[in-house]
């Protein structure tokens, strides 16, 4: 068992446990913190895969910006655990979990059996430890994917305006 495998098991295990914790804690603060753990572990996995840029962005954007936003909202609204009012029936909950497990089985089946027969499985990495540099990504982004890149800026702008309108209207209604 080489270092890569050990690290994979470590990061993979932490992210999986973190994910399960996210959906298990009753209090949203704990969930959010667990999610941060998961994100960090995933950043580690990205490093293992040689995707340094993505790993950095993962930490900065997800673990940094997005999760701060989550925590901010949770604390702003001062949300505790929810009352049991209107709780989903146990039967539906059990059914949902069974469904999730079935979906997992199918996902694993795809990962192990189906993809083996495709070009992705047969393609061999060019080097033993391939590294995708920020330069490569930047080149692609500003050449081949220039238009989608510009469109994402529009999406962000729309989101910005949308958020302002939504929250502003809410406060007007309050007054």
């Amino acid at each position: 068992m080489n270092a890569e495998q050990i690290l994979f098991i470590l990061f993979g295990g932490v992210s999986l446990i973190g994910a399960i914790a996210v959906i298990s804690f009753r209090h949203p603060i704990y969930s959010a913190l667990s999610l941060i753990v998961t994100f960090f572990a995933q950043a580690g996995l990205f490093l293992l895969l040689g995707a340094h840029f993505v790993a950095a962005v993962q930490v900065i954007v997800y673990a940094g910006a997005i999760m701060v936003l989550f925590l901010f909202v949770i604390m702003l609204l001062n949300l505790g655990t929810l009352s049991a009012k209107g709780a989903m029936s146990g039967k539906l909950k059990g059914f949902a979990i069974v469904l999730g497990i079935l979906l997992a089985v199918e996902g694993v089946y795809i990962a192990t059996n189906v993809l083996n027969n495709t070009a992705i499985a047969s393609a061999q990495p060019a080097t033993e430890t391939p590294t995708t540099t920020t330069y490569d990504i930047g080149e692609l982004l500003f050449s081949k994917y220039l238009l989608p890149f510009e469109v994402t800026s529009l999406i962000l702008l729309a989101a910005l305006i949308g958020v302002i309108v939504l929250v502003k209207r809410g406060s007007e209604a309050e007054n």
Binding site: S15, A19, I23, L45, G100, L103, A111, L115, I120
Partner: peptide
């Protein structure tokens, strides 16, 4: 590759649940 994909599938399913 497939170990990553399996992990990915499990994480996804956790999210779904």
């Amino acid at each position: 590759l497939q170990y990553y994909l399996i992990l990915s599938a499990l994480l996804f399913t956790t999210g779904v649940i």
